[in-house]
Each structure stands twice: as C-alpha cells, then as structure tokens.
C-alpha cells in the first residue's frame, strides 16, 4: 500500500458507525408516519453506505479510489431520488393535503 494508513482508528470503527447509521435509517423508515421523514431516513441509510465506501476506499483501495467514485455516484443519485421524491410528495399533497403515510390508503397497501 502506497498510501499512509491512518492506523489510529481501526477500519472496524468506521464500519460500526456506518452500520449504526444504516440501522437508524431503517428504524426511521419503518416508524415514520410522515412521508418526508421517511425520505430523510432513506438518506440516512445512503449516508451509512457512503461511510462504508469511503472507509473501504481509503483503507483498501488507495490507488484507484473506486469507493470514493462510488460514493459520489451515490450522492448524485440520492439527490435525484430526493428531488423526485419531494416532487411526487408535493403533487400528492396538492391532491390530498396530507403527508401522513397512514392516510395514503386509496390503494390497499
């Protein structure tokens, strides 16, 4: 490995942090009634993934830094997803005047 590894913090620490973030996201996804909060929870999950990717990238893949490239793609796509999500939510809000997940029951869930 040509790159100097930051040995003070072990890789596992980052992975645990990422796992915690991801789990928080999952928990929020399941428990939120507000659709905006659900979107935010998904963002949290993606950020957990990003931490994973960055950590692996700097520890294992110092030269090609594929992980960092991957992370940038994830951020871009997440932005697009959020934009689309909010747009759909807006149009739904115009129709129904609510963002409560429990009340989106025109279709049997």
């Amino acid at each position: 490995m040509s790159l100097e590894l930051p040995t003070t913090i072990p890789l596992q620490a980052y992975l645990v942090l990422a796992a915690l973030l991801f789990c928080t996201g999952v928990w929020g996804l399941i428990n939120s009634r507000n659709a905006v909060r659900v979107l935010m929870s998904i963002e949290l999950m993606l950020n957990g993934v990003n931490i994973n990717l960055m950590a692996f990238s700097s520890y294992l893949d110092g030269q090609l830094i594929r992980g960092q490239v991957f992370a940038i793609f994830v951020i871009c796509v997440a932005a697009a997803e959020a934009a689309v999500g909010l747009a759909i939510l807006l149009s739904l809000y115009r129709n129904r005047e609510t963002v409560d997940m429990e009340r989106f029951n025109l279709l049997r869930w």
Binding site: L39, G85, I88, F104, L106, L107
Partner: peptide
C-alpha cells in the same frame, strides 16, 4: 397515481 408513485419511490 401519485400515491402509487410515492409508495413505489419509498
């Protein structure tokens, strides 16, 4: 349609 889209998206 919007509701289907939101569910699909989430």
């Amino acid at each position: 349609s919007a509701e289907a889209a939101l569910k699909y998206l989430l």
